[in-house]
């Protein structure tokens, strides 16, 4: 009974993680410029791989493995925004342009202020 429930939960986690990864890949191809593509890759992509790792922890069914999977999940969730933010800031400072339909660039005179 409990094994069947864990298997069904694992199946749900696996499918939703793969769905998030697919959504991230679609967004990476469909969005217009670098800064919007970064949203897809760093949010949906991270959640996708994190859910798949959680699925491994749930499927194993013992506490140490689940704790390791949870640690990996938190590691990804913590590091993905840092790397995305660093890359976006570097690209913006170097001068890669926003898409023409962007309505607002709050960091336009960031370099002048510091």
């Amino acid at each position: 009974m409990i094994d069947g429930f864990l298997a069904l939960l694992t199946a749900f986690l696996v499918l939703s993680g793969a769905g998030f990864a697919l959504a991230a890949a679609i967004g990476l191809n469909r969005l217009p410029d670098l800064y919007t593509r970064m949203h897809a890759a760093s949010k949906a992509g991270t959640v996708g791989s994190g859910l798949l790792l959680l699925a491994v922890g749930v499927h194993a069914g013992d506490l140490p493995t689940f704790a390791r999977a949870l640690a990996g999940f938190f590691f990804f969730v913590l590091t993905a925004p840092i790397s995305a933010h660093l890359l976006a800031m570097a690209a913006h400072r170097v001068g890669y342009p926003l898409h023409a339909e962007s309505v607002r660039d709050e960091m336009k005179d960031y370099d002048k202020r510091i």
């Binding site: 696996v14 990864a21 991230a24 990476l28 791989s49 798949l52 990804f76 790397s83």
Partner: peptide, 23 residues
């Protein structure tokens, strides 16, 4: 930077593959 973002995403997908193989 587009390519760098895509490479980062590629790492995430490979992590997903590894998790599936683990299961």
């Amino acid at each position: 930077p587009d390519r760098v973002v895509a490479l980062d995403m590629l790492t995430g997908i490979v992590i997903g593959f590894i998790a599936l193989i683990a299961i």
